[in-house]
Design a protein around this nucleic acid. Structure first.
Length: 761
DNA sequence: GGCTCCTGTCATCTG
DNA sequence: AGCAGATGACAGGAG
């Protein structure tokens, strides 16, 4: 069956070619339509009724060949047109290229069809298609499918983009392969060309639709869209069965029958009627790239999220990105496609314009003849994927270079050689830099201070300081002065060094002992010039030492030889010295006197010796005015007055020294606490940093998957996926996403890398 | 006896 | 200038 089909189709084609060569107009349409059903069935195959039929394209019969839209012989019609166009293409330059390129998206003003459809073929099928193309590089295309292609390109205003590969400029412009430049081969074709041109000028096929067919384009009669037909490589390329044609048509026209690329911007949205399109497919293909159209796509949102993340620019190097991309599971269709990329050179004539997806409005200005004649480097190689009227993406995408963003520089240029089948890391350096920035910020935060919460806490502690004059008013000295004197010692002893713990313990004990003089008598409370720390530590001091006799009751204070009766009132001393005569024996009386003598300070002894008429406590703690008033009440000698002044001075200095030492100790304790807090903060920040890095890694993976998804859905005019080693998505400054050759992306990435460096300089 | 710690004291500075 | 407070330095006592 297959052989019969092949025989028929090949024979038909050969016959048509022969007739065309001799100038006979061949009406293959009628021939095909008049086929007997069995024959037609043989050629078309039984599935023709189920294949996709370009009914709406039939009206666009440029040459007057009316075919009823319902005719089931449409396949024949298309096949015949294709074959005829191939015959006609004989008079063209034979420009075989390694790739079928530049199916133009350009339309004449009169509305005739010349544009082609971006062949966003299904990803899964494009893999095989890519292989076919690869196989076709071996001299297939120059024989049939690519005939006249280069000239057609020029006719339509298409200019080949610069080629970074081995092709010469002529190759580039013509999109031709090396075989074309075989002179004899070309000479023959030119001869044929002349003949055909003479007889074909009046050919009714001379329309653009015919030209499109000549380039294996199937023109939709209704919408005017042109569908490039991917001719599979193989031995029987001279005859492509209609069934295969339709199958390829289905495979290479994912947008459905109505996809078209009107040159008119205003008609862009209308050009893609939603009724006849596979909505899911359309959305899936367009949504990542289009904004501002009818449907809010999830992928668009994902892109925005992605770009928002990119703009944060505050991340650290993460090596997982490239690994993830490169280690794409083998079952991934993208990876499958990409695996073919290195061995599948894509001609720079790739009509990246056509890769532009429907809905791109202003971007199609690029396809106007004027623009297409521009230097290709600036226009034709760019693939605007996002309409410039999409404000959302414009705002979010900014000027980020997706190429540099997604592909590490080293991969941009050498992915073909080194990356092999793996997909380059789309994130690459940007995230790395960003993560470095993030780390630096965190480090800065650690160095600069605490988080606001902690700072406020510390501030509160500092502000809670007592009104003491110590500089440690910034330190929570008073916080621990009352409860903290004991608590702080316990707390600090747990985490601080042994020396600090000993200091704390001694502080708690000595605080009780040392400051006991401040609370040892009721007179002290009556004194107006109470020392600053007295109210705080008087709690436990008063409890234990209000009665001097209790000092001896505290075993841990019994061996303390310090004088804690410095300010004890003479009356109290006297009372201690004069126990009830009836209750005390003489021996106990002496003991008690000895004890009290020991408890008396030197100044008290001196005061007693000098017969000072008031207590040392009053001498020390009375305000100046009262003190002077007190002195004026008594007739005191100079020696007595001098002693009183010395006692007052020493007493005050003693308390001041105690306060000073206490403050000093508190300061040390607070410093220890601060150190602990800082250590905790540091640990917390480090934990947060780890979490940030983890989340960043996840976002990075998300970005990579999105990039893969978007990139993997892009198809060239032949429905084949673009090679990630040769093309990259770039985020243009106007908010559009461009598909550009990797070489260009590399250059731009390098340029962007230099800018920050220059700025730093 | 020496060391450490605590305390008191002095001298000095500051407000 | 005098005073009160703060603080460093020193000395003495106790363990």
């Amino acid at each position: 069956m297959l052989s019969l089909k092949k025989y028929l189709t090949e024979g038909l084609l050969q016959f048509t070619i022969l007739l065309s060569l001799i100038g006979v107009r061949v009406d293959v349409d009628t021939y095909l339509t008049s086929q007997l059903p069995p024959l037609r069935e043989i050629i078309l195959g039984p599935s023709s009724a189920y294949t996709q039929t370009q009914f709406h394209n039939l009206r666009n019969t440029l040459d007057g060949y009316g075919i009823h839209p319902k005719s089931i012989d449409l396949d024949n019609y298309f096949t015949a047109r294709r074959l005829l166009s191939q015959v006609r293409a004989l008079d063209r330059f034979q420009v075989p290229t390694t790739e079928v390129n530049a199916w133009l998206v350009h339309r004449d003003p009169e509305g005739s069809v010349s544009g082609s459809q971006p062949n966003s073929g299904l990803a899964l099928e494009s893999s095989s298609g890519l292989q076919d193309v690869t196989g076709s590089d071996n001299g297939v295309r120059e024989s049939e499918t690519e005939q006249g292609f280069g000239e057609d390109l020029e006719d339509l205003g298409a200019v080949a983009p610069p080629v970074s590969g081995d092709l010469t400029k002529e190759d580039i412009d013509l999109g031709a392969g090396r075989e074309v430049f075989d002179y004899s081969h070309r000479q023959k074709e030119q001869d044929v060309e002349k003949e055909l041109r003479d007889g074909g000028e009046q050919d009714t096929w001379a329309g653009e639709g015919a030209e499109a067919l000549a380039r294996n384009l199937l023109v939709d009669g209704e919408t005017g869209e042109s569908f490039p037909v991917q001719v599979p490589s193989g031995e029987d390329q001279t005859a492509l069965s209609l069934e295969e044609c339709l199958r390829l048509l289905e495979a290479t026209c994912p947008f459905g029958e109505n996809a078209e690329f009107p040159a008119d911007i205003s008609s862009i949205t209308e050009a893609v009627p939603s009724e006849s399109e596979p909505p899911d497919l359309q959305n899936n293909l367009l949504s990542p790239l289009l904004t501002g159209t009818e449907s809010p796509f999830d992928l668009e949102q994902q892109w925005q999220d992605l770009m928002s993340i990119m703009e944060m620019q505050a991340m650290e190097v993460n090596t997982s990105a490239s690994e993830i991309l490169y280690n794409t599971p083998s079952g991934d269709p993208l990876s499958t496609n990409y695996s073919l990329a290195p061995s599948t050179p894509i001609n720079q004539n790739v009509s990246l314009h056509q890769a532009s997806l429907g809905g791109c409005s202003q971007d199609f200005l690029l396809f106007s003849p004027e623009v297409e004649s521009l230097p290709v480097a600036s226009s034709s190689t760019l693939l605007p994927l996002v309409p410039s009227n999409s404000t959302s993406l414009n705002s979010t995408f900014g000027s980020t270079n997706l190429t540099g963003l997604f592909f590490p520089p080293q991969l941009n240029g050498t992915a073909n050689d080194t990356a092999g089948p793996e997909l380059p890391d789309p994130l690459g350096g940007l995230l790395d830099e960003a993560m470095l920035d993030e780390i630096s910020l965190m480090d800065l935060a650690i160095e600069e201070g605490f988080n606001p919460v902690q700072a406020s806490q510390l501030e509160e502690e500092f502000d809670s300081d007592s009104g003491l004059s110590l500089d440690s008013s910034h330190s929570p000295s008073s916080l621990s002065s009352s409860e903290g004197s004991s608590s702080s010692s316990s707390s600090s002893s747990s985490s601080s060094s042994s020396s600090s713990s000993s200091a704390s313990s001694s502080f708690s004990e000595e605080g009780a002992v040392g400051y006991s003089s401040d609370s040892e008598t009721l007179d002290l409370e009556e004194a107006e010039g109470a020392v600053g720390y007295q109210p705080e530590y008087s709690k436990f001091c008063r409890m234990s030492y209000q009665d001097p006799a209790q000092l001896s009751c505290l075993p841990y204070l019994e061996h303390v030889g310090h004088n804690h009766t410095y300010n004890m009132a003479p009356s109290a001393l006297d009372s201690a010295d004069l126990p009830p005569p009836s209750a005390l024996k003489k021996g106990s009386k002496e003991k008690q006197a000895d004890f009290l003598d020991k408890q008396m300070s030197r100044d008290e002894h001196r005061a007693r010796a000098m017969k000072i008429p008031f207590t040392n406590d009053k001498i020390i703690n009375l305000p100046v005015e009262e003190f002077n008033e007190l002195l004026s009440k008594y007739q005191l000698s100079e020696a007595q007055l001098s002693l009183i002044r010395d006692i007052r001075r020493r007493g005050k200095n003693k308390m001041a020294a105690q306060n000073c030492r206490k403050r000093k100790l508190d300061t040390i304790l607070n410093l220890e606490r601060d150190v602990e807090d800082l250590q905790r903060d540091k640990a917390r920040l480090l934990r947060e940093k780890v979490e940030f890095l983890r989340s960043l890694r996840q976002m990075k993976q998300k970005v990579q998957s999105l990039y893969q998804e978007v990139f993997g859905r892009l198809r060239d005019e032949n429905g084949r996926p673009y090679s990630p080693s040769q093309y990259a998505l770039q985020y243009a400054g106007d908010g559009s996403v461009l598909l550009i050759p990797r070489t260009m992306a590399d250059q731009q990435a390098r340029r962007q890398e230099r800018k920050p460096k220059d700025r730093r300089k």
